[in-house]
Write a protein that binds this DNA or RNA. Structure first.
Lengths: 196, 196
DNA sequence: CGCCGAGTTGAACTGAATCAAGAAACGTGG
DNA sequence: CCACGTTTCTTGATTCAGTTCAACTCGGCG
């Protein structure tokens, strides 16, 4: 079970031997999961970060009123963590589920520690990932605060054209914070504009 | 010009001498600014992180349509950074402005580096701050995706009772992503409910 | 005293939600 | 490979939360 994406993810931006990462990878648990399989349920604990080698995951929550909203999609080469659980010993707010048959690598703290030891630049790299993630979340907040459903959808199309093609529209709607019906109408409206 | 909050912020959770932090503080620029003073303008660059020793800042953006939205409030003991500018060499998306007469400490990369050198646990602490920040942003996204104006306001009241008392309602509205008029009505509604 | 910005209130409007019903696409087993 | 049930998408009618615009109140401050 090869994991070329994983190897590339940790070697391409870091000064480290492929063989070293490969060794570390071999110490990690790997999971081949079917579409719809739930890796982590809301309320459970997990110290793992999931690296998506192949397939597509989503991280989502059900709120009090039974509405579900999607925090993130994670296609190949993405990392998904439940921070509440992994770093703050709190039950997870989000569930993590496969939207396609997937292959994920389970990373834990010891992997991070070993990589930190092995690669001088890793801490900085990791920090950079976190800062980038923060920027991304801030952008999304900005959109939610001041963009219409249509603008948010167009932004999504531009940012994640790949994901768009791989998930049902319902889920895109849930990511954007609108109903599937509204998304359908928004799309119709856009198509209509284009054909003029 | 003493900065007890600053000292406490970096000593209380870290295994480091007060005198060491104090020395580092003395190498940092400090700014005493008046209400409404703009520390950073949208589009500018700044490699600094601002630590709020006293007073209150806000981080906000004006979008295309001239609408302003507030990304964050920063009262005493908060850190504010423009990540685009500080870590990714991009012009800042957000402006940073004082909402009260304030005293801020300007932290730069060399401060971080020195503290990292000096205090073994600092990297982990810093990481923890970042993860916590991410959680916070995720929570906000969750609210924006599925809570009503009233629910968002009540959440704000609970989370930031202090800020609530210190800023004009207009700004709270802008943080929540609603108009000042709507906020006024929401508050009226809540008061009405309580008096029953 | 008079101005000015912040907050409130009202009336009309609008973007998106809801509810309900069909149509299309999809996968699974015979 | 087709038939059937299930999920996904579309469309329509109605409702509703929140916006917009405009007028008015209130408290502070020169």
């Amino acid at each position: 079970m090869e994991c070329p994406n994983f190897i590339r993810f940790f070697t391409s931006n870091l000064d480290v031997q492929e063989s070293d990462v490969s060794d570390l990878l071999n110490q990690c648990e790997r999971l081949t999961i079917k579409k719809n399989y739930v890796l982590l349920n809301q309320g459970e604990f997990s110290k793992h970060t999931f690296f998506v080698e192949k397939g597509l995951l989503r991280q989502f929550a059900l709120n009090e009123n039974g509405k579900e909203h999607i925090l993130s999609f994670a296609p190949e080469n993405w990392l998904v963590t439940d921070r509440d659980s992994a770093y703050f010993n709190q039950p997870s707010i989000y569930s993590i589920q496969a939207l396609e048959d997937s292959l994920v690598v389970l990373i834990d703290q010891s992997f991070i520690d070993k990589l930190t030891q092995l690669v001088p630049g890793f801490t900085a790299y990791n920090n950079r990932l976190l800062h980038n993630h923060i920027r991304h979340l801030q952008d999304r907040i900005g959109l939610l605060l001041s963009a219409t459903a249509e603008e948010r959808y167009l932004n999504f199309v531009q940012m994640y054209p790949d994901v768009l093609m791989r998930v049902p529209q319902t889920m895109v709607a849930s990511y954007l914070g609108i109903t599937p019906e509204s998304l359908s109408r928004v799309r119709k409206e856009i198509a209509h504009k284009k054909s003029e």
